[in-house]
Design a protein around this nucleic acid. Structure first.
Lengths: 113, 113
DNA sequence: CGCCAATATCGATACCTATCGATACCGTGA
DNA sequence: TCACGGTATCGATAGGTATCGATATTGGCG
Protein backbone atom coordinates (compact mmCIF):
# COMPACT_ATOMS: atom_id res chain seq x y z
CA UNK A 1 0.00 0.00 0.00
CA UNK A 2 3.00 2.22 0.35
CA UNK A 3 6.67 1.95 -0.48
CA UNK A 4 8.77 0.94 2.44
CA UNK A 5 11.22 3.79 2.15
CA UNK A 6 10.14 6.73 4.24
CA UNK A 7 12.87 8.94 2.86
CA UNK A 8 14.73 8.48 -0.37
CA UNK A 9 18.13 7.74 1.03
CA UNK A 10 19.00 10.10 3.84
CA UNK A 11 18.87 8.82 7.36
CA UNK A 12 18.61 11.44 10.03
CA UNK A 13 16.16 14.11 11.01
CA UNK A 14 19.09 16.40 11.64
CA UNK A 15 20.55 16.06 8.16
CA UNK A 16 18.29 18.64 6.59
CA UNK A 17 14.72 19.83 7.20
CA UNK A 18 12.01 17.45 6.07
CA UNK A 19 9.71 18.80 3.43
CA UNK A 20 5.97 18.64 3.97
CA UNK A 21 5.46 15.43 2.07
CA UNK A 22 8.25 13.56 3.82
CA UNK A 23 7.03 14.79 7.17
CA UNK A 24 3.49 13.63 6.44
CA UNK A 25 4.67 10.13 5.58
CA UNK A 26 6.87 9.78 8.62
CA UNK A 27 4.24 11.27 10.90
CA UNK A 28 1.75 8.59 9.88
CA UNK A 29 4.08 5.92 11.20
CA UNK A 30 4.91 7.71 14.44
CA UNK A 31 1.24 8.41 15.00
CA UNK A 32 0.65 4.68 14.82
CA UNK A 33 3.29 4.25 17.52
CA UNK A 34 1.74 6.98 19.62
CA UNK A 35 -0.76 4.75 21.36
CA UNK A 36 0.07 2.62 24.39
CA UNK A 37 -2.03 -0.31 23.24
CA UNK A 38 -0.35 -0.40 19.85
CA UNK A 39 3.09 -0.16 21.42
CA UNK A 40 2.28 -3.10 23.65
CA UNK A 41 0.90 -5.07 20.72
CA UNK A 42 4.09 -4.43 18.81
CA UNK A 43 6.30 -5.47 21.69
CA UNK A 44 4.23 -8.58 22.36
CA UNK A 45 4.47 -9.65 18.74
CA UNK A 46 8.17 -8.82 18.54
CA UNK A 47 9.07 -10.74 21.66
CA UNK A 48 6.72 -13.65 21.06
CA UNK A 49 7.87 -17.17 20.41
CA UNK A 50 8.85 -17.46 16.76
CA UNK A 51 8.48 -13.74 16.14
CA UNK A 52 4.76 -13.99 15.53
CA UNK A 53 1.54 -13.90 17.49
CA UNK A 54 -2.03 -14.64 16.54
CA UNK A 55 -4.91 -12.31 17.30
CA UNK A 56 -6.11 -14.61 20.04
CA UNK A 57 -2.79 -14.15 21.86
CA UNK A 58 -3.32 -10.42 21.74
CA UNK A 59 -6.96 -10.23 22.74
CA UNK A 60 -6.00 -12.35 25.74
CA UNK A 61 -3.34 -9.86 26.76
CA UNK A 62 -5.64 -6.85 27.04
CA UNK A 63 -8.82 -5.91 28.77
CA UNK A 64 -10.22 -4.63 25.49
CA UNK A 65 -12.78 -5.93 23.04
CA UNK A 66 -11.73 -8.01 20.07
CA UNK A 67 -12.83 -5.33 17.56
CA UNK A 68 -10.61 -2.82 19.31
CA UNK A 69 -7.56 -5.07 19.03
CA UNK A 70 -8.43 -5.72 15.41
CA UNK A 71 -8.59 -1.98 14.80
CA UNK A 72 -5.14 -1.41 16.27
CA UNK A 73 -3.69 -4.27 14.24
CA UNK A 74 -5.10 -2.70 11.11
CA UNK A 75 -3.49 0.64 11.93
CA UNK A 76 -0.10 -0.98 12.52
CA UNK A 77 -0.41 -2.95 9.32
CA UNK A 78 -1.41 0.08 7.25
CA UNK A 79 1.78 1.91 8.13
CA UNK A 80 3.93 -1.09 7.39
CA UNK A 81 4.91 -2.01 10.93
CA UNK A 82 3.17 -5.39 10.87
CA UNK A 83 2.36 -8.04 8.31
CA UNK A 84 -0.23 -10.75 8.67
CA UNK A 85 -0.67 -14.25 7.38
CA UNK A 86 -3.69 -16.49 7.70
CA UNK A 87 -3.09 -20.11 8.60
CA UNK A 88 -6.15 -22.25 9.15
CA UNK A 89 -8.56 -20.28 11.30
CA UNK A 90 -5.91 -18.06 12.81
CA UNK A 91 -4.23 -14.91 11.60
CA UNK A 92 -0.62 -14.44 12.64
CA UNK A 93 1.08 -11.07 12.85
CA UNK A 94 4.81 -10.31 12.54
CA UNK A 95 6.78 -7.11 12.87
CA UNK A 96 8.57 -5.71 9.82
CA UNK A 97 12.10 -5.17 11.12
CA UNK A 98 13.08 -3.01 8.14
CA UNK A 99 10.37 -0.56 9.08
CA UNK A 100 11.58 -0.29 12.65
CA UNK A 101 15.14 0.08 11.39
CA UNK A 102 14.12 2.99 9.17
CA UNK A 103 12.59 4.82 12.09
CA UNK A 104 15.52 4.02 14.30
CA UNK A 105 17.90 5.48 11.72
CA UNK A 106 15.75 8.59 11.37
CA UNK A 107 16.06 9.27 15.07
CA UNK A 108 19.72 8.42 15.44
CA UNK A 109 21.56 11.64 15.92
CA UNK A 110 24.98 12.11 14.43
CA UNK A 111 27.16 13.63 17.14
CA UNK A 112 26.23 17.29 17.56
CA UNK A 113 27.58 19.03 14.48
CA UNK B 1 8.87 17.37 34.44
CA UNK B 2 9.72 13.77 33.75
CA UNK B 3 12.79 11.60 34.08
CA UNK B 4 14.66 11.19 30.86
CA UNK B 5 14.76 7.43 30.96
CA UNK B 6 11.80 5.94 29.18
CA UNK B 7 12.67 2.43 30.26
CA UNK B 8 14.82 1.45 33.21
CA UNK B 9 17.66 -0.09 31.32
CA UNK B 10 16.44 -2.32 28.51
CA UNK B 11 16.68 -1.06 25.00
CA UNK B 12 14.49 -2.77 22.51
CA UNK B 13 10.79 -3.21 22.01
CA UNK B 14 11.49 -6.81 21.11
CA UNK B 15 13.30 -7.65 24.31
CA UNK B 16 10.16 -8.29 26.30
CA UNK B 17 6.62 -6.92 26.24
CA UNK B 18 6.21 -3.42 27.63
CA UNK B 19 3.95 -3.14 30.62
CA UNK B 20 1.13 -0.62 30.58
CA UNK B 21 3.02 2.09 32.36
CA UNK B 22 6.10 1.86 30.18
CA UNK B 23 3.94 1.86 27.08
CA UNK B 24 2.07 4.95 28.23
CA UNK B 25 5.30 6.86 28.74
CA UNK B 26 6.79 5.90 25.42
CA UNK B 27 3.52 6.52 23.60
CA UNK B 28 3.45 10.11 24.82
CA UNK B 29 6.74 10.76 23.06
CA UNK B 30 5.79 9.01 19.85
CA UNK B 31 2.49 10.83 19.81
CA UNK B 32 4.43 14.07 19.90
CA UNK B 33 6.34 12.86 16.84
CA UNK B 34 3.12 11.85 15.11
CA UNK B 35 2.40 15.25 13.65
CA UNK B 36 3.95 16.53 10.42
CA UNK B 37 4.38 20.06 11.71
CA UNK B 38 6.19 18.89 14.82
CA UNK B 39 8.44 16.61 12.80
CA UNK B 40 9.37 19.50 10.56
CA UNK B 41 9.98 21.75 13.56
CA UNK B 42 12.25 19.13 15.03
CA UNK B 43 14.20 18.70 11.83
CA UNK B 44 14.50 22.43 11.30
CA UNK B 45 15.86 22.93 14.79
CA UNK B 46 18.18 19.94 14.52
CA UNK B 47 19.64 21.01 11.21
CA UNK B 48 19.78 24.72 11.98
CA UNK B 49 22.97 26.67 12.29
CA UNK B 50 24.41 26.10 15.75
CA UNK B 51 21.86 23.43 16.62
CA UNK B 52 19.28 25.94 17.71
CA UNK B 53 16.50 28.01 16.22
CA UNK B 54 14.39 30.80 17.61
CA UNK B 55 10.62 30.86 17.41
CA UNK B 56 10.77 33.53 14.75
CA UNK B 57 12.74 31.17 12.51
CA UNK B 58 10.00 28.61 12.90
CA UNK B 59 6.97 30.81 12.42
CA UNK B 60 8.62 32.02 9.23
CA UNK B 61 8.94 28.44 7.96
CA UNK B 62 5.25 27.58 8.15
CA UNK B 63 1.99 28.97 6.93
CA UNK B 64 0.57 28.70 10.43
CA UNK B 65 -0.21 31.19 13.14
CA UNK B 66 2.32 31.99 15.83
CA UNK B 67 0.13 30.50 18.61
CA UNK B 68 -0.02 27.24 16.69
CA UNK B 69 3.76 27.01 16.42
CA UNK B 70 4.02 27.88 20.09
CA UNK B 71 1.61 25.07 20.89
CA UNK B 72 3.68 22.53 18.98
CA UNK B 73 6.87 23.70 20.65
CA UNK B 74 5.23 23.22 24.02
CA UNK B 75 4.23 19.65 23.14
CA UNK B 76 7.75 18.79 22.01
CA UNK B 77 9.19 20.35 25.13
CA UNK B 78 6.82 18.55 27.46
CA UNK B 79 7.96 15.16 26.24
CA UNK B 80 11.61 16.08 26.52
CA UNK B 81 12.45 16.35 22.83
CA UNK B 82 13.26 20.06 22.97
CA UNK B 83 14.66 22.50 25.48
CA UNK B 84 14.37 26.25 25.35
CA UNK B 85 16.40 29.17 26.51
CA UNK B 86 15.49 32.83 26.49
CA UNK B 87 18.13 35.28 25.33
CA UNK B 88 17.11 38.88 25.12
CA UNK B 89 13.73 39.04 23.43
CA UNK B 90 14.09 35.71 21.68
CA UNK B 91 13.55 32.14 22.80
CA UNK B 92 15.87 29.55 21.30
CA UNK B 93 15.01 25.87 21.01
CA UNK B 94 17.39 22.90 20.84
CA UNK B 95 16.82 19.21 20.40
CA UNK B 96 17.71 16.84 23.24
CA UNK B 97 19.89 14.25 21.50
CA UNK B 98 19.67 11.80 24.40
CA UNK B 99 15.93 11.67 23.98
CA UNK B 100 16.19 10.88 20.30
CA UNK B 101 18.84 8.27 21.07
CA UNK B 102 16.53 6.56 23.55
CA UNK B 103 13.79 6.26 20.97
CA UNK B 104 16.23 5.13 18.34
CA UNK B 105 17.47 2.37 20.63
CA UNK B 106 13.93 1.32 21.44
CA UNK B 107 13.22 0.77 17.77
CA UNK B 108 16.49 -0.88 16.85
CA UNK B 109 15.79 -4.52 16.26
CA UNK B 110 18.25 -7.14 17.29
CA UNK B 111 18.62 -9.56 14.38
CA UNK B 112 15.53 -11.77 14.19
CA UNK B 113 15.84 -14.21 17.07
C1' DC C 1 -24.34 -28.64 3.63
C1' DG C 2 -24.65 -26.20 7.87
C1' DC C 3 -22.62 -24.93 12.28
C1' DC C 4 -18.95 -23.06 15.05
C1' DA C 5 -14.92 -20.44 16.23
C1' DA C 6 -11.70 -16.76 14.82
C1' DT C 7 -11.24 -12.40 12.82
C1' DA C 8 -12.76 -8.17 10.36
C1' DT C 9 -16.01 -4.48 9.36
C1' DC C 10 -19.71 -1.21 10.54
C1' DG C 11 -22.13 2.57 13.01
C1' DA C 12 -22.37 5.26 17.06
C1' DT C 13 -20.33 7.95 20.74
C1' DA C 14 -17.35 10.32 23.86
C1' DC C 15 -13.05 12.25 24.10
C1' DC C 16 -8.90 14.41 22.23
C1' DT C 17 -6.37 17.86 19.44
C1' DA C 18 -4.85 21.10 15.72
C1' DT C 19 -5.99 25.44 14.62
C1' DC C 20 -7.40 30.17 15.05
C1' DG C 21 -8.13 35.12 16.97
C1' DA C 22 -7.77 37.67 21.09
C1' DT C 23 -5.10 38.73 24.77
C1' DA C 24 -1.62 38.39 28.45
C1' DC C 25 3.27 38.28 29.59
C1' DC C 26 7.99 39.89 29.41
C1' DG C 27 12.49 41.96 27.93
C1' DT C 28 14.41 45.98 25.59
C1' DG C 29 15.13 50.50 24.40
C1' DA C 30 13.70 55.32 24.27
C1' DT D 1 8.35 54.47 33.17
C1' DC D 2 6.13 53.55 28.87
C1' DA D 3 5.63 51.61 24.43
C1' DC D 4 6.82 47.92 21.45
C1' DG D 5 8.10 43.48 19.52
C1' DG D 6 8.54 38.53 20.54
C1' DT D 7 6.42 34.72 22.71
C1' DA D 8 2.97 32.21 25.54
C1' DT D 9 -1.71 31.36 27.17
C1' DC D 10 -6.80 31.24 26.69
C1' DG D 11 -11.35 29.95 24.79
C1' DA D 12 -13.77 28.22 20.98
C1' DT D 13 -14.44 25.02 17.19
C1' DA D 14 -14.03 21.57 13.65
C1' DG D 15 -12.19 17.27 12.60
C1' DG D 16 -10.01 13.00 14.17
C1' DT D 17 -9.91 8.55 16.91
C1' DA D 18 -10.29 4.88 20.57
C1' DT D 19 -13.74 2.22 22.06
C1' DC D 20 -17.87 -0.51 22.08
C1' DG D 21 -21.83 -3.79 20.55
C1' DA D 22 -23.76 -5.77 16.55
C1' DT D 23 -22.90 -8.07 12.50
C1' DA D 24 -20.44 -9.85 8.39
C1' DT D 25 -16.78 -12.91 6.69
C1' DT D 26 -13.95 -16.86 6.51
C1' DG D 27 -12.18 -21.51 7.12
C1' DG D 28 -12.56 -26.04 9.41
C1' DC D 29 -15.32 -29.84 10.77
C1' DG D 30 -19.11 -33.04 11.51
Amino acid sequence: MEPLELLECSSSLAREPLDGEQAAGVARVFKALGDPVRLRILSIVASHQGGEACVCDLTAAFDLSQPTISHHLKVLKEVGLLTSERRASWVYYRVVPERLAELSALLSVPATV
